[in-house]
């Protein structure tokens, strides 16, 4: 499998997109640190990048990459190689290169400017979201043979988790505002990796506000080690389950 990963990795480097992405992240992060002396505000702006741009780039890039390497995959499968090895090789190569870009582009400045716990939470959530959306991209890629359709599905995933889901959640909160909703919303938040990542960041940035009202409930939950394990496990599931489903489909698929 390492060999497959290596070849795919070289292939990704050759398209130069990943280098551009790294440069974009690095430049924008550095620019933010240069423009603002308050690291709290910088982390806040970076959080928007992590919650919006990183998932979008991850999912679109992975989907396009999958279709671009269709011929390579077909070639590999004509050899005596297990389908699982080829598929996971592709997945890990894409995931590793995107994580690598994120670590260089955002991680290095964040560590360099010494932003403490909030910086590390930012890196952690960014890497997790990258992996989650790469997984979803692979799922959308195996769902259909048509490249345009797959990109559409991928964008829909992104749109759903970034915006539509929050709209639904707000509608639920609004409709049932007279009921105790803490536990229900907690469960609903787990169904969206972007929200989960956002709340982990909120605990770093808006801790004072979260201490008020019902916010204290989330603070107690997510702030404890149990909550950290819970959110990590949920994010892991969001990474593993789509890949696992995609792999199942890919194994049986008529290419």
């Amino acid at each position: 499998m390492t060999r497959v990963i290596k070849y795919v990795f070289y292939d990704i480097l050759r398209t130069r997109f990943i280098l551009l992405y790294t440069a974009f992240l690095l430049l924008s992060t550095l620019a933010m640190f240069q423009l603002d002396t308050d690291t709290g505000k910088v982390i806040l702006s970076l959080m928007n990048i992590v919650l919006m741009v990183v998932p979008l780039v991850s999912i679109v890039f992975s989907t396009i990459h999958f279709y671009n390497s269709y011929e390579f995959i077909e070639l590999m499968l004509s050899q005596p190689v297990n389908r699982r090895v080829v598929f996971l090789g592709e997945y890990f190569a894409v995931a590793i290169s995107l994580c690598f870009s994120f670590t260089i582009g955002v991680g290095v400045p964040v560590v360099f400017y010494d932003t403490g716990a909030s910086g590390f939470t930012l890196l952690y959530t960014g890497l997790m979201l990258t992996l989650v959306f790469v997984s979803m991209a692979f799922l959308s890629s195996v769902l259909t043979r048509d490249k345009a359709k797959a990109i559409g599905v991928a964008l829909l995933f992104w749109f759903y988790f970034s915006l539509i889901y929050d709209g639904l959640l707000m509608w639920i909160i609004y409709s049932f505002m007279d009921y105790p909703l803490e536990k229900v919303t907690l469960a609903l938040v787990s169904l969206n990796p972007v929200d989960l990542a956002r709340i982990l960041m909120l605990l770093q940035l808006d801790i004072s506000a979260l201490m008020g009202y019902t916010g204290a409930f989330y603070k107690d939950f997510f702030g404890s080690s149990l909550g950290l394990i819970f959110s990590s496990v949920i994010l892991m599931l969001w990474i593993v389950l789509p890949v696992w489903g995609a792999l199942r489909i890919f194994k049986r698929k008529d290419l």
Partner: peptide, 19 residues
């Protein structure tokens, strides 16, 4: 909004709220 519905603090800083 949060003043009226405290639970809504959960959606703070989401893209939807930004819009």
């Amino acid at each position: 909004v949060v003043e009226r519905i405290p639970t809504a603090v959960l959606l703070w800083r989401s893209f939807l709220v930004f819009l």
